[in-house]
Design a protein around this nucleic acid. Sequence first.
DNA 1: CGGTTCATTGACATATCTCAAGTGTAGTGG
DNA 2: CCACTACACTTGAGATATGTCAATGAACCG
Lengths: 246, 246
Amino acid sequence: MQIVVEHSRKDIHNSDIPVICAACEARHGGVCGTLTASQLTELSRHAARRRVEPGSEMIGQGEAANNYANIIRGVVKLSKMLSDGRQQIVGLQFAPDFMGRPFMRESALSAEAATDTDVCAFPRAVIERLVGEAPGLEHRLHEQALKELDEARDWMLTLGRKTAQEKVASFLYLIATHVDPEKGAAKEFDLPLSRADIADYLGLTIETVSRQITKLRKEGVIRVENSRRVIVPDSRRLTRHAGIDC
Amino acid sequence: MQIVVEHSRKDIHNSDIPVICAACEARHGGVCGTLTASQLTELSRHAARRRVEPGSEMIGQGEAANNYANIIRGVVKLSKMLSDGRQQIVGLQFAPDFMGRPFMRESALSAEAATDTDVCAFPRAVIERLVGEAPGLEHRLHEQALKELDEARDWMLTLGRKTAQEKVASFLYLIATHVDPEKGAAKEFDLPLSRADIADYLGLTIETVSRQITKLRKEGVIRVENSRRVIVPDSRRLTRHAGIDC
DNA sequence: CGGTTCATTGACATATCTCAAGTGTAGTGG
DNA sequence: CCACTACACTTGAGATATGTCAATGAACCG
């Protein structure tokens, strides 16, 4: 975070950076951080800022994937569906994550905005050309893939082996950590997901999620306001309910 | 597969390839395929063939990860454990997959041979140096990571949303597909995993796995011999029991 | 042959799901 | 400002899939 600020200062004196990028919150996140000024210019020529409403699908399972995007603001759900409608969220992406599955024409999952979201989208062809020119770009994409792989595997443990109580606590802890990575501290935040989404992320039903949240509330592990706002007085305590090994 | 055979023929006339590699079954799989002769020589100087007994741990969760490896033969389980002993297998790796988590000092999971396994191991330092020299190497590692990510997400859907019956059928289908990718054909194979391992892979108990296998057998979807050998007369039929969308 | 490990089967317990009703809360229109 | 609907969430009662515990069987090995 410090570093981002310092770099931003430098950018002000660097007139080579495209205007749209110089003001971009994700200038150094996503894929843009590794690009040179000219590559950034090239990319920004084809880039389009878009605002996405919560619930609107950005790409569907089985559709052609013609775009990559940086998430500027908001949370995006990645999910998979069975033919009979059962659904599982397989990943959440937060700003300033990069979105898109390199080297694949067709999406194996659907991406949908969970909250109000801003993205900066560019055609896959441009990215794939830049990969050949910018040595650091593939490395950045590789790191993002590895990060997502680690997260997916962590979540497999949650899905396969934790109780409903632990699943819900793990989810709350995940969100709390994204808001503020400091361990054991008090936290307060709005849930980016509805109960239905949380259920789809945890492999549970809406009702079970609701009951477990109530249970955590009654035990004093969390407080809840307006059903979306959550207060965690002691996130170490939450951790214990989440079955997280530390 | 065709391609591998053709390349092997060429190798016979290419005396630059290290002897140990020229005879290697994974010569063009894993990471080796993208290396030049001199890079391969460099790598092979530090490489060590090892045979691993089933059940023996190759690396433990939280240990320092000092090695990468190509799997020459066999199946390796990647698993995560909670502090109270609950375990989840988060991935299976088959020959000629590459094993190892690039750019990370410490393993977030444990790797254990499921079957008799041969690997070709090399120190992480050598690989990381070669990444800087061989442009194709990081691309290969990146593709492997993306493949594992796709597999992990597919499995999350299985873990979170499928019934025990569908989970077991999905597992059998996964193994059947690895033996022979042809769709709808009859298949016969030995399970590389014990019932306990299958349970850990599916987020079930041993008893439930056993009951579901019995059920599939009684319905005629599979036949079982010696509890390890499985015959699938019609893998399309198996697919239907696996809740796989096609 | 006995001992060990692994797999199967049964009887019962229980966590989670299902179905149904009830409670907010926000938005809409009169 | 007050109905009125719509939607998301909560809560309850009962059903059920899966887990737990215990016994048995089958394969393997010294």
